[in-house]
Simulated scan of single mutants.
Amino acid sequence: MPNASAAIRVGASAESANGLPSTIIESLDRLEEVGTDTVELPLLWMELVIDGRVMPARLEELRRAISGRPFAYSAHAAIGINFMCDPVYLALHQNLARAHLTIAAELGCEHMVMHTGFCAPGLAKPQIERLRAQECETLLKLGEEAQAAGVILCVENIFAEKGNRLTASASELAAELRELDHSHLRACLDISHAALHCDSVGLDLMEEVAPLIPLAKHVHVHDSFGRTNNIPVHTQQEALGLGVGDLHLPVGWGNLPFDDIVTLGEFPRDTIFNIELNKHRWHALDETVRETRRLASRARVR
């Protein structure tokens, strides 16, 4: 059963089959059956925005699909949004982020998750610094809009995928958010992403994660082996067999030190531990919810 009063709530990301918002109904039924406290709406997988503009009919379709449920909601914005992009394309990224923020606010979502920025690894240091400044300026503006809309933006750490992108580590993201110091700019700690990034660039996972925990109003929970995928694979099953990449496995299938991490620092009260299972692993949803509730009960909260 949902536990809205828990210091740390347990949620899960819904699934959308083909972009139409109504296709999440089946996954909402399943999540209601297992009793998650919250649901993360996958705006990134849905046909809701066209050329930076919200599609009203699609928004109403999603509103109908989620109404009458026992959940609190969060939302995940498009993965492709990148405020460290070439300045020529910045307005396009900003427009999509604002459209998703509008949707999140319209649907009463507490949090909207967005990935942190990235750029090509071969850029000169002054170029990288300019793009980081561009990202910070945009985040501050969006944070103001989020505050007015009643939504907390949770910036998620990503990883240097196959060495072809430069992005902030978990500790660098923590430092950036502290510098921005905005009440509606917080973190989404993705533990598997942090492990993959540490493997890719040679950092210590616990040292990287610790500074982000006090800022993490949202945590993405899914397992992996923290092993960068530099091996060509053709299917999810091959990646699973090799144990490489961002596998989005049930907790306990991989080797990430969840028990150590949830007691490493103090999470904010009302943090959401949100399960992000690969769609091929939903058969293990029940066990993953149970294990995530166990982790939430062990987590330190300030």
Rank of each mutant, 00 (worst) to 15 (best):
D260Y: 06
E26F: 07
S169V: 11
E106F: 10
D270Q: 15
T36G: 09
N157Y: 01
V39L: 03
V88M: 08
N95P: 02
I261K: 06
G163D: 12
N157D: 12
A195T: 09
W282M: 07
I79A: 00
A146I: 10
K162F: 02
T167R: 05
L90M: 07
V49E: 00
H222K: 05
A284N: 13
L295T: 14
R30V: 04
F159M: 07
R98W: 08
F71D: 09
R227E: 04
E287G: 01
R186N: 14
G11P: 10
W45G: 04
T116P: 02
H115Y: 12
C109A: 14
S192I: 04
L107M: 10
V10S: 10
S200Q: 15
A133R: 14
N95V: 01
V233F: 11
D223E: 04
M55K: 13
I272D: 04
H115L: 06
I152R: 09
D37L: 00
A284S: 15
R227P: 02
K125L: 15
L48I: 08
D51P: 10
A210L: 10
Q127P: 03
E238K: 06
E207P: 00
R130T: 07
S183K: 14
M114E: 05
L153K: 03
K125R: 15
A168C: 13
F83V: 06
G243M: 05
R58M: 14
D223Y: 02
L212G: 02
G245W: 08
M1V: 13
G52L: 10
Q237H: 08
P126L: 03
Q94H: 07
A299F: 05
D259V: 03
A194Q: 03
N3S: 14
G226H: 03
T228N: 10
L107A: 09
